[in-house]
Amino acid sequence: MAMMPSGTSGNPYDSLNNTQIEQDLIDPDDANINDLDDPTEPTSDRAPLTGNIQNSRNPLPQSYLNSSIPGEDRRAPQNTIDESVWDTLSRDVMAVWEKMRQVLWPKYLLGGFLQRGGGLGGAERGEGDSLAGGFRGIAGRWPDADVVLQGGMSEGLRDWDLWGPLVFCLLLSLLLSMTASSEQKTVVFSGVFALVWVGEAVVTAQIKLLGGNISFFQSVCIIGYTLFPLVVAALLSAVHLPMIARIPVYIVLIGWSLAAGISILGGSGVVKNRVGIAVYPLFVFYVGLGCLCFIS
C-alpha cells in the first residue's frame, strides 16, 4: 500500500505511523533489534548517521510494532500471497490429510512391531532417527515410550490447524447426543463438546507445565486429530452395537487413540522420567470419552 494522502484514507494508522517511522529509517542495517531506537523514548545521540542505507526493507523498525502482538514482517519461504485459490485449498487439504495419516498409522505401534520383527528400527521414523536410533544402538533395548518421546516432531505437524479438533469434536458430540433421550439431547451435546475442549486444554497445560516444548494450539491440534478412533466408537454406539461386542472393540479403539497421541506428541520433549505423568491425563481423557461412548 502506498502512502495515502492523509485525510482521504480510511485507515486510522496513517497519521500515527508517519512520525514514528521516519526516525528509524536511518538506523544502519547492521544494528540488531536491541540497537534500534525505541521511538517512545527520547532518541539518544549514539545513533550513527553513517550507516549503509541500502537496506530499507529488511530490519524493520520492529521495536514499536512488537508492543501488543509480537510478530515479524517477512516474505514466506514460498510466496503464497498471489497464488490461486485452488493452490491454497489443496495445500491446506494436504496438510490436514498428512495429520490424519499420522493418526491412522501411529508410528509408535509400527516402530514396536518392526523392532520385534528383526531389529529394523530406525528407518521407520523421520528425523527422530539419529537420536532414537543412537539410543537403541547403545542400550540395545525395545523402543519404549521414553525413546519415542525423545524423537523429533515431524515437519507436517508443526503447522497446526483446528479443523480436525473442530470436526471430530462436533461429530463426537453429535453422535453421542443422538442416542440420548430427547429432552437430554442438548445437555449431552454441549456437555461432550465442552468436555472435549476442556480436556484438551487440561492435557496440554499438563504437558506445558512439565516442560514440554510444544505450543498450546499445536498440542490441542494433535489431541483433536487423535480423537478419530473415538469418533468411530461413538458411531458404533449410535448404530447400537451390542454391549458384549463393545468391550473388546472399544478397548482397541482407545488403545489406538492413545498410541497415536503418544507417538505424535513424541517431539514435545517431555523430560524422560516424567513421561508417565505427562501421558497419564491423556490416558484418562481417552478412557473417559471411551466410557461415554460405551454407556450411550
Binding site: 515479524e72 514482517d73 514466506a76 503464497t80 503447522d159 497446526w160 516444548n213 494450539f217 520433549g269
Partner: peptide, 20 residues
C-alpha cells in the same frame, strides 16, 4: 502463526503485497 519446533514458542508472521 508459526511454531518454533525447538522451543515450542509461537509467533505471528505477517506478509503483505506491494500495492502501491
Amino acid at each position: 502463526n508459526e511454531v518454533n519446533t525447538a522451543s515450542g514458542d509461537s509467533h505471528w508472521v505477517f506478509e503483505s503485497q506491494d500495492r502501491s
